[in-house]
Design a protein around this nucleic acid. Sequence first.
DNA 1: CTTATTTATACTCAATTTGAGCATAATCTA
DNA 2: TAGATTATGCTCAAATTGAGTATAAATAAG
Lengths: 318, 318
Amino acid sequence: MSDINTTDSTDILIDISTAILRAHDGALQFRALEDNGNTAKRLPFGPFMPDRHRTMEIGLRQWVREQVGVDLAHVEQLYTFADQGRYKSGEGRHVVSVGYLALARAEDAAGGAWDNLYDYFPWEDWRDGRPDMLDDIILPALDKWLAQNDEARARVRLAFGRDGAQWDEEFVLERYELLYEAGLVEEAARDSDSGKKQEPVPPALGQAMQLDHRRIAATALGRLRSKLKYRPVIFDLMPDRFTLRALQQTTELVLGTALHKQNFRRLVEKSGFVAATGKTSRARGRPAELFRFRHENRADRPLSGLRVSGGRKSSDGK
Amino acid sequence: MSDINTTDSTDILIDISTAILRAHDGALQFRALEDNGNTAKRLPFGPFMPDRHRTMEIGLRQWVREQVGVDLAHVEQLYTFADQGRYKSGEGRHVVSVGYLALARAEDAAGGAWDNLYDYFPWEDWRDGRPDMLDDIILPALDKWLAQNDEARARVRLAFGRDGAQWDEEFVLERYELLYEAGLVEEAARDSDSGKKQEPVPPALGQAMQLDHRRIAATALGRLRSKLKYRPVIFDLMPDRFTLRALQQTTELVLGTALHKQNFRRLVEKSGFVAATGKTSRARGRPAELFRFRHENRADRPLSGLRVSGGRKSSDGK
DNA sequence: CTTATTTATACTCAATTTGAGCATAATCTA
DNA sequence: TAGATTATGCTCAAATTGAGTATAAATAAG
C-alpha cells in the first residue's frame, strides 16, 4: 500500500492545463495566452493544490477564472501526462500534467486572445480536401525518418492513413506524437537535450506551444472529434438559437471534414436533439429556421450524438 | 507559470492502480489482492516514482510485475482521481490516484487470485435479462434518497435508464458514483467521517474494495464496454485460436448483454478482423471452426471494432 | 421589377446494414 | 438410431445511409 512504498517519492507537482475551445467566425479557436519573453503561447494552467482544491476540476476552474474570463460549458478530463523530459520545470520538481478539454459558447467567451486551432495542426483540416502539406512535406519527411526508424512504420501507416489504411480524423494525438518523435515539430528540438540540436524542418509544421500544451491541444481535438459521434457535445459550442447550417458548420469545423447538407439535416432532425422555433434570415439566400437544443430530451434517446460519417467507403475488393 | 504558483503546493503522492481483466471460465475476472487485516480486496497498485519511472506506464508495469505475475496485452490509462476525502492515506500526504485498465489473455495470466468482476457490480450483468436487484433493491433505495436529493434525479434517470430513458451499458461509473453518493455501497460509509455512520444497506450492493479501487474498476468496465465498439480490443482477451462462439461469449461477458448468434458471426466475418484456420470440436455439438486474429489487417480497415448492438430499439412514436 | 444568385428544405432512390428467424449440418450422448 | 446440441448458411423485411434532384424563399444585380 501507499504507506509501504512511500519512502523516497520525489517531489511532484501537478499542473492542470485546459484547452478551451469555441467555434467563432467560422474557425475552431482556443484560448491562447502569451507570456513575456516567450514566442510560443500556452494554455491556461496552474498547479493543483489539494489544500485549496477539493477536486481537480475546482482547481481548473480557479486557473481559468484567474487567467481568462470564460464561462465553460463542457469540461472533461483528457489525460495525465507524466513522461520525464517532455516538460521542463524551472526547479528540480517533477511535473505531471493533467490535461482538460473545455468547451465554451462564443457568447460566453468574448474577450481575450483566441487562436485558430488549425494554425497549430494545419494537417488536420480536410474541409477543402486533403491538405497539400501532407504529400508535399509531411509524408516525405516521415519517410526519411522511417528509413532510420523502421519500427514506427506501422504506426505511421495507421495514423496517416497510408498504404491502403484510411485517414481517421480521430488520430490527432497519434499524428502529433509521431511528428514529435520524428523531430518535425519545434517542440521536439526544444525538449531534446540542447547539445545535439535537431535540424529544424524548413517549413515549420504548425505553430509551437509552451511545455506540452500542444500535445494537450492535440488530445483535446482528438477526443472532441471522437466524442461528437456518441454524445451530443457539439451543442456546447453552439449559441442558444442556431440554424442547422450553423450546426453543420461547427460540426465540420470540429471534424475537419465536409458533410453532405441534406443528410446532415436529416440526421439532426431525426435525432430529436433539436426543436424548431421562429426563424432568422440575415445572410443571403432563403432564411433558415432557427433551432434550439432540447435539454429535456437529453436522456430520452440513445444519446448517440451525431453519427456523422464521411461518405461511403470505397468498397475495395473484399 | 509553474515557478510562479509553486509556492505552497502540498506534498502529493501519485498512486497508480491497475484493473487487470481477463475472460476465464465463462466469467469476466480481475486480479484482486488480499491484504492482512482487511476484508476488502484491492487492485495491484503502487506510487509513481518519477526518479525510477520514466513514464507512468513503466511504473505500472513495475507494480504489476512485483505484485502479480501477469503478462499484459492491452494497457490504457483511464482517469486521474484527485477528490479529497475519497482516499485516505495513512500519513498526511495528499493522494492522487491514476487508474489504468489492462487486458490479459487467460493463458498469460494463470496464477493468483482472480475475482468475478460482476460480484462487485452485480447490477451490470444483464446477460440473463434485467437483474432483479435493480427493481427490488436499487431503484427503491435510490428513490428514497432522491426524496432528499432531488437535484440528482436527472442523473439517476440517465444512468439507470428510468422514465423512458434507456439503459446504457457504458454508464458503469455513473451508476457506481450515484450508488456511492446515495450511501448504498460500503465504501461510502467507510469514507464518510466516522462520526455519523451512514446506515449500511441490508443487502450489500456488490463487494466493496479498498481505497477507490472499485471506482477504478467501474471506470475500467465502462471504458472497455465503450471501446469494444470502435476498436478491436476484444481480441486482447482471447487466446491465439478461438471459435466465434468463444469470441461472442467474451463479448457478451464484457458488455453484460446477450447477442444474436448468427448476426454476431456475420458481423465478425465481415469485419475482416479474423481469419479461419483448422477446427476443433471438444465440447458437444457440431465442431466449430477455429479463427485467429488478423494482426496484419489491423490497420486496413476503419478499425471499427465490433459494432455490436443490443437489438432493435423500440421505435417509440417520434 | 425581373432575373440571377444564394441558401434552405423536401423528396427520391438505390445500396447497404441490421434485426430476427428458419433451415440444415455435424458432432456427441443415450 | 434417435435425440440433443452447437455451428453455420441463408432469407427477408425494416431501417439506415450516400448521393442526388427538385423546389422554395430570400437578397443582389441589372
